[in-house]
């Protein structure tokens, strides 16, 4: 009944290995494994479904290996899903299954509609070109042509992310971890996407640096109305940023709900364990 949605994912599965007929039935929450006992294939995720409203932030939590990053990488097209659909509204003026598009369409999608920030900056950045160059590269993939304009826009974006103008021409390889994440965020936002994917963006950063990056994300949420999917193992990050949360375990959704409900009234045994183990 809800008015509209931006992204609708149904039946997403990703399997690594040769696969057999039993992979999906012999793995998951009840089986307490994501490795098929018959053929040894890894079911990174399966039966993943959710809907994301425009401007909404969805959190995906779970331990390492629960499949949460796989969901993002299938959506962004870094991995090829084994099954499922993902209908994305703004793409090609209508709803399109982004699991079923050509490489050219995928490029357009990435250039105009979707940004991603990886846990490891080297995946999202070219560390051998300048910070400004990284953002410019992204801009030039779309309609930006004039060098002066591109430089100005890149500088403005980096400035918003609190990367000083004096560092714009430096190589991000020599930046601190927090600063690298800021450059990644600037790059991901360069073309004004409708959906931003964030994969463990503060994992590995010092607590005070984490705080700065999280505050930046919150400012972006307040200012731009961009939708986000935030993958994190940290319930504190989810609590701070996400309105709705999915809890994953053994490649499946253990539980989904409003973030405050997940934290205060967790239903699934795993979520109860997760919440009672955390300090949020």
């Amino acid at each position: 009944m809800t008015a509209d949605w931006l992204l609708h994912v149904a039946g997403l599965a990703k399997r690594y290995g040769r696969g057999c007929d039993y992979c999906y039935t012999l793995t998951g929450l009840a089986a307490a494994t994501n490795e098929c006992p018959r053929c040894g294939s890894l079911v990174a995720c399966a039966e993943i479904g959710f809907t994301l409203a425009p401007g909404q932030t969805l959190g995906i939590v779970g331990e390492s290996g629960s499949g949460k990053s796989t969901v993002l990488s299938c959506l962004y097209g870094d991995s090829e899903p084994s099954a499922g659909h993902a209908y994305f509204r703004p793409f090609a003026d209508g709803q399109r299954d982004i699991f079923d598009i050509t490489p050219g369409e995928r490029r357009t999608l990435r250039n105009f509609q979707m940004g991603i920030v990886y846990q490891h900056p080297h995946r999202g950045l070219n560390l051998r070109i300048s910070a400004g160059g990284n953002v410019a590269e992204r801009l030039m993939a779309t309609e930006w042509r004039r060098v002066g304009d591109i430089r100005e826009r890149a500088s403005a974006l980096l400035g918003r992310m609190e990367v000083p103008a004096s560092r714009m021409d430096d190589l991000p390889a020599f930046f601190s971890g927090g600063m690298q994440q800021r450059v990644q965020i600037a790059k991901a936002l360069a073309n004004g996407p409708t959906l931003l994917l964030l994969d463990e963006l503060t994992t590995g950063l010092d607590v005070s640096v984490q705080a700065g990056v999280l505050d930046l994300i919150r400012e972006i949420q307040a200012a731009s109305g961009i939708a986000m999917i935030i993958v994190s193992h940290d319930l504190g990050v989810i609590r701070l940023l996400a309105e709705r949360t999915i809890v994953m375990k053994h490649g499946r959704i253990a539980e989904a709900g409003l973030t405050d409900q997940i934290l205060e009234d967790p239903q699934h045994p795993y979520t109860q364990l997760l919440v009672s183990s955390a300090n949020v």
């Binding site: 009944m1 809800t2 809907t51 409203a53 909404q56 309105e243 709705r244 409003l258």
Partner: peptide, 8 residues
């Protein structure tokens, strides 16, 4: 109600 309806 759906989570989205509650958020609204």
């Amino acid at each position: 109600a759906s989570d989205d309806a509650i958020l609204d």
